[in-house]
Amino acid sequence: MTFWEKLYLPEIARGLGITFKMLIGPKMTIQYPEEKYHPGGYYRGRPVLVLDEDGERCVACGLCSRVCPPLAIEVRAGETDREKERYPVKFEINMLRCIFCGLCEEVCPEEAIVMSKDLEMVFENRESAILGKEKLLVPVAQLQDRLEYLRMHQYYEPPARAQDA
């Protein structure tokens, strides 16, 4: 080390300069209850079911339920007369179990379950933390960010859809 480096004081002065710049510089904090956090498509919040114009996308294959590590998803399939003959009679996600890993989203062949931006999950009792279809279905328009993000980061071709054409 040279004499100046051994002296240590110039380096302290430089460090003080850096911290002073931080002191007067912009702050990262979001003042939460007043100011909301609006994450981009990368955010893995509450998992939701996608609701298209022609109804829900889910075909009740049960892959999400199968892959879910904490066993938070319960699907019961039913049949219809429509072209897509299966649909979930019951689709429940237990938010007390969900770990927001996003495996359900990754495994879904229909792009029917995705992670939303919803990060405010407050429940007053255990029963209300088990979300049924009525709370899970979200119109596709609100999930565009996430769907776009998934297409950019997916390893396989997403299923062709009418609105893509």
Partner: peptide, 10 residues
Amino acid sequence: RIAAWIQMRI
């Protein structure tokens, strides 16, 4: 307060 400001907090 100053600790927070230096660490880019409030």
